[in-house]
């Protein structure tokens, strides 16, 4: 679907992206991670044809990205903005039509989404009257209304309460099931674990970690196990570190000596830990 090939981009002396390459296959949810100022937003802007790379290329379905095929992309920027003076319905329709929908298509899609997110009553409200979360929902609809093949979401959950964050999460998953490829840029590692198939971690403009989420967690395992035993008639829960070279069975035998084991499971490192560890090293 999307191929980023050896892309570099500098602003003056600062190198924002340094030979980044990544590939987003069709139909997956791809996580774009990295600390603040790592270059994620610059990369997303290159994908959106807002800015051009100094070197390297960004290909969408094998074609260099320009305004013509950028209509297949839906982009929710991190810093959101809508015209304050417009009504919700008019605004959504306007953005849909700028993305190339006909007036009729725009109306149909808008009605569909307003029903789906249960915001029909906002249609004639001014954007100005909306709360931050409400405006966020409107912006989400404006991002997906033209049925893009590729959806780029920059911090899609910020500003939402847990209930609405979950509604948006479900909608993203639904779109993904229906065939939309999603690039998710977020600092929320729980949602990365829950939603993303693959990730790229960018730090100082370089891709420092790339691959399948489960594989990455496997690679970063530290041999820590959660063990629940009955010792002297009492239930004790512990995290136990495996010794170097020790097999699981050897560990269990060591543990069994002190009491009856009722639970034994490996704890994979969270993406949060991996993120911190990778960025700090």
């Amino acid at each position: 679907m999307l191929i980023i090939n050896n892309v570099s981009k500098s602003f003056g002396q600062k190198r924002a992206l340094d030979h980044i390459s990544l590939e987003v296959p069709d139909g997956i949810i791809y996580g774009l991670l990295g600390p603040n100022g790592a270059g994620k937003t610059t990369l997303i802007r290159i994908i959106n044809a807002i800015t051009a790379p100094d070197s390297g290329e960004a290909l969408l379905d094998g074609q260099p990205i320009s305004l013509e095929n950028a209509a297949q992309i839906g982009y929710l920027p991190e810093e959101r903005g809508l015209y304050k003076d417009m009504r919700v319905g008019e605004h959504v329709r306007y953005l849909a039509r700028l993305k190339g929908l006909s007036d009729l298509q725009a109306r149909e899609q808008m009605n569909l989404w307003f029903k789906r997110l249960d915001i029909e009553s906002w249609r004639f409200k001014n954007i100005e009257e909306l709360s931050k979360g409400m405006a966020q929902k409107v912006q989400f609809i404006a991002t997906v209304i033209h049925r893009p093949k590729l959806l780029i979401l920059d911090e899609p959950f910020s500003g939402f309460d847990p209930v609405n964050a979950d509604i948006i999460r479900q909608e993203i998953l639904r779109l993904n099931r229906e065939g939309t490829t999603v690039i998710l840029s977020t600092h929320n590692m729980e949602s990365v674990e829950a939603m993303c198939n693959r990730i790229t971690l960018i730090n100082n403009g370089r891709a420092v970690l790339q691959g399948d989420v489960q594989q990455i967690r496997q690679q970063h395992r530290k041999g820590i196990y959660r063990v629940v035993r009955t010792i002297d008639g009492e239930q004790v829960e512990q995290n136990v570190q495996k010794l170097p070279g020790e097999s699981n069975n050897a560990l269990i035998q060591r543990l069994v000596a002190e009491g009856e084991i009722s639970t034994f499971e490996e704890i994979l490192p969270s993406m949060n830990d991996i993120f911190i560890q990778t960025v700090q090293s």
């Binding site: 802007r45 959106n48 044809a49 807002i50 305004l67 992309i73 982009y75 920027p77 809508l82």
Partner: peptide
């Protein structure tokens, strides 16, 4: 206004 309320990022990825 378009610049300060950031709507331009959406606009610029849709139109010249």
């Amino acid at each position: 206004q378009e610049k300060s309320n950031r709507i331009m990022e959406i606009l610029i990825s849709s139109v010249r």
